Computed example of a mutant assay.
Amino acid sequence: MSLLSNILSRGVERIYPSCEDLERRLLQAPLRLYNGIDPTGPSLHIGHVVALKKLREFQGLGHQVVLLIGDFTAMIGDPTGKFSVRKTLTEKEVQSNMERYVSQIGKILNLEKTELRYNSEWLGTLSLRDIISLLSEFTVGQMIERDMFQERVRRDEPIFVHEFLYPALQGYDSVALDVDLEVGGNDQTFNMLAGRTLMRRRGKEKFVLATKLLTDPTGKKMGKTEGNMLALSDSPDDAFGKIMSWPDEMLPLGYELLTNQDMDEALGRIESNPKAAKEALAKEILEWLWEDGAGARAQESFTERFSKGKISGELPVVEVERGTLLSDAVISSGLVESKSQWRRLVRAHAVELVGGKTIDNPLYRADKNLQVRIGKSRFLQVVIL
Rank of each mutant, 00 (worst) to 15 (best):
Ser2Met: 03
Leu8Ala: 02
Val12Lys: 06
Glu13Lys: 12
Glu13Pro: 00
Ile15Arg: 00
Asp21Leu: 12
Asp21Tyr: 07
Leu22Cys: 10
Arg24Glu: 15
Arg25Met: 11
Arg25His: 08
Leu26Thr: 08
Ala29Phe: 06
Pro30His: 04
Arg32Met: 05
Arg32Thr: 12
Asn35Leu: 01
Thr40Arg: 05
Ala51Cys: 14
Arg56Thr: 01
Val65Pro: 00
Gly77Ala: 04
Gly77Cys: 08
Lys82Trp: 02
Lys82Val: 01
Lys82Phe: 00
Phe83Cys: 02
Val85Pro: 02
Arg86Pro: 01
Thr88Val: 12
Glu91Asp: 11
Ser103Pro: 02
Lys107Trp: 03
Glu112Gln: 13
Lys113Val: 06
Leu116Ser: 13
Leu116Met: 08
Tyr118Glu: 10
Trp122Tyr: 11
Arg129Asp: 13
Glu137Phe: 11
Phe138Leu: 01
Met143Tyr: 03
Ile144Asp: 02
Ile144Pro: 06
Met148Tyr: 04
Glu151Arg: 14
Ile159Leu: 05
Ile159Arg: 01
Leu165Val: 06
Pro167Trp: 01
Ala168Leu: 07
Val175Thr: 10
Val175Gly: 05
Leu177Thr: 06
Asp178Tyr: 10
Asp180Thr: 06
Asn186Ala: 09
Ala194Val: 00
Thr211Pro: 11
Leu213Phe: 08
Asp216Lys: 07
Leu232Gln: 11
Asp237Gln: 15
Ala239Lys: 05
Asp248Ala: 07
Leu251Lys: 02
Leu251Pro: 01
Tyr255Asp: 06
Met263Val: 13
Glu265Met: 13
Lys278Arg: 15
Glu279Met: 15
Ala282Ser: 06
Glu284Leu: 07
Ala294Asn: 00
Ala298Glu: 06
Gln299Glu: 14
Glu300His: 05
Ser301Arg: 10
Phe302His: 03
Arg305Met: 14
Lys310Tyr: 12
Ile311Ser: 12
Ser312Lys: 14
Leu315Lys: 14
Leu315His: 14
Pro316Gly: 13
Val318Leu: 08
Arg322Asn: 12
Leu325Lys: 10
Leu325His: 10
Ser332Leu: 09
Gly334Thr: 05
Gly334Trp: 04
Arg344Tyr: 12
Arg344Met: 12
Ala348Leu: 10
Leu353Asn: 02
Gly356Phe: 08
Asp360Gln: 12
Tyr364Lys: 12
Tyr364Asp: 09
Ala366Pro: 12
Leu370Pro: 10
Gly375Lys: 05
Ser377Pro: 08
Leu380Asn: 10
Leu380Ser: 04
Val383Arg: 15
